[in-house]
Simulated scan of single mutants.
Amino acid sequence: MNNSTILPEKCTQFNGLYKWTVQKQAVNSRLDKYITEQTNIFSRSFVQKMILQGNVSVNQKAVLKANIVLKSGDTIIMQTPIPYKPTIDDIKIANERIDIVYEHEDFFIINKPAGILVHKVPGVNNQVTIVDWLLNYGLVSYALHDNVRPGIVHRLDKNTSGLMIIAKNPYGHAYLAKLFQDRLIQKKYVAIVQGITPPEGSIDFYIGRDPITKSRMAASRVKRDHTFRTALTHFKTVASNNSISLVEASPVTGRTHQIRIHLQAIGHPLLGDTLYHVADAMFTRHALHASALSFTFHDQLVCVASALPDDLNQACLYYNLN
């Protein structure tokens, strides 16, 4: 079995249909691994789902096993759901909810509302995204990753609200990406969590993909395998009342679901987080807001803050978290 990374090969793509011809460097690769690395936009679990549903063929024969070993010259076709194309009215509605709170010639910062995806994800084809909004209004002058994620240098979960940086051009993208890589962008989040949290603390559990439920992340005191990566979150308690706390969290690293899984790991899950806790009648989403960003762009210090949105502010009033 060839375990090395497969170099991208020529791919034909039209209306959700992808086609490849396997080259020599990919011989003996697993089918699901090959497709995942060729597209770079679909997760391996999504590809496996497409295979199980009969949406993948090899040499014009449908296959239902993800572990098929490929040969040179094999022709692979995968049919995925046709991507949703938002209407102008859809994007105008999104535009009314998205605020640009800071602007520079190379980037700008938005206040993203909860409920909006940053970019398209496999299996979700009927929602306007931040990328749709950017492209429709011509707010970025370039695209990376085959036009999939123009301007995007970091992400917020769909149901996380708050501040997000968008690059306007290739220079801004490269500079900001380096700042994120070097951990020179300070981020603060506000969360409403279950239980009375300590006055302050740090959480350094490793974070990796949950081995049973692939949509979840898992936290561990030890590194379970090579997929678990170091993660560090500092936090302090802003207010507590009746077994509910308002917490300010500052992630040093940027792992998927980091704040959500770290706080859950120490016994303080976010209210409304149905992935890591339970549903809450007061919340239609998890109680997390990206409240502050600070960094230096060349010699210019950028500090931006965002007040709690109405739903979280109302929750603070209800729980008397002043």
Rank of each mutant, 00 (worst) to 15 (best):
A66F: 00
S72Y: 14
V124T: 12
P81G: 09
P81K: 05
V58E: 12
Q127Y: 10
N95L: 01
S72D: 14
P122R: 08
W133H: 03
I77D: 09
S141I: 02
V140S: 10
V128C: 12
N125F: 00
V124F: 04
Y137N: 05
S57Q: 15
L64T: 07
I100D: 08
K71V: 02
K61D: 05
I93H: 11
W133C: 03
L70I: 05
L70H: 06
N126V: 02
K92R: 14
W133R: 04
N59H: 11
Y102D: 08
L139R: 13
H119S: 09
N126F: 01
E103T: 04
D99E: 15
L144T: 14
G138Y: 00
L117H: 09
P86E: 10
M78T: 03
P81M: 00
V56E: 02
N59S: 04
I116Y: 12
P122H: 09
F108M: 00
N59G: 06
R97Q: 15
V128N: 10
P86H: 10
E105Y: 00
I82W: 01
N55R: 02
I82L: 06
K92T: 08
I76D: 13
N59D: 13
I109E: 05
V101H: 02
I68V: 15
T129A: 11
I88F: 05
V124W: 04
I77F: 05
P83Q: 06
D132A: 03
V128Y: 03
T80C: 10
I130G: 09
T75W: 12
I110W: 09
K61G: 02
Y102K: 05
S72F: 13
A114P: 07
T129H: 11
S72W: 13
V131C: 11
V63M: 06
N136A: 03
